[in-house]
């Protein structure tokens, strides 16, 4: 069946079997391999994408559910070659090791600070608790998200001034 949606700002129309999982659609059909698969039971968040701005698990979505929606993947983070604050934060704070959870973590982090620009450490830990990282122990992921929040805040102040 045909499904039409927006991904990283570009409209796409694809022909898929209804049973196609969104993660597979993105990885195989669209060739964007930054969205990963870490489990079969919707527990790990390696497959996280933003659906109309909210983080969801793309392994637990059927392709036809995307009809008319907006999807953001890790490939959509850097706009016009400029890194998103969340990407800068992850690099600066050593928020990644093997990088497998990183796309999901960054997307969750970005959505989190958009909804709550000044999160506490508890709020960050709670917010990323649907995503597993096997490498970092989360300490630096928390810092990375704080880093991005601070950078956004600084930019907003600069914009006002």
């Amino acid at each position: 069946m045909k499904v039409t949606f927006e991904i990283n700002g570009a409209e796409k129309s694809v022909d898929v079997e209804p049973r196609t999982l969104v993660v597979d659609l993105i990885r195989t059909k669209l060739g964007m391999t930054g969205t990963h698969i870490g489990c079969d039971t919707s527990n790990c968040g390696a497959c996280t994408v933003l659906l109309d701005g909210r983080p969801v698990k793309s392994c637990t979505l059927l392709a036809p559910m995307l009809e008319g929606k907006k999807v953001t993947t890790v490939e959509g983070l850097a706009a016009g070659g400029k890194l998103d604050a969340i990407q800068v934060g992850f690099h600066a704070e050593h928020g990644l090791q093997c990088g497998f959870c990183t796309p999901g973590m960054m997307l969750v982090g970005k959505a989190l600070i958009e909804a709550n620009p000044h999160p506490t450490e508890d709020e960050i830990r709670w917010g990323i608790s649907g995503n597993i990282c096997r490498c970092t122990g989360y300490m630096n992921i928390v810092k990375a998200i704080q880093h991005a929040a601070a950078a956004n805040a600084a930019e907003n102040t600069a914009g006002v001034a």
Binding site: R27, G31, M32, T33, G34, T35, H36, I37, T73, V74, E75, L77, A78, L83, Q87, F90, H91, A92, H94, L96, G99, F100, T102, P103, M106
Partner: peptide
């Protein structure tokens, strides 16, 4: 030193086995 390998991962350009086609 901030990691040299980070760039590809934060762009979603890490290249894992399942990405090989």
């Amino acid at each position: 030193l901030a990691r040299k390998e980070d760039a590809r991962f934060i762009h979603g350009q890490g290249h894992y086995v399942d990405d090989v086609v």
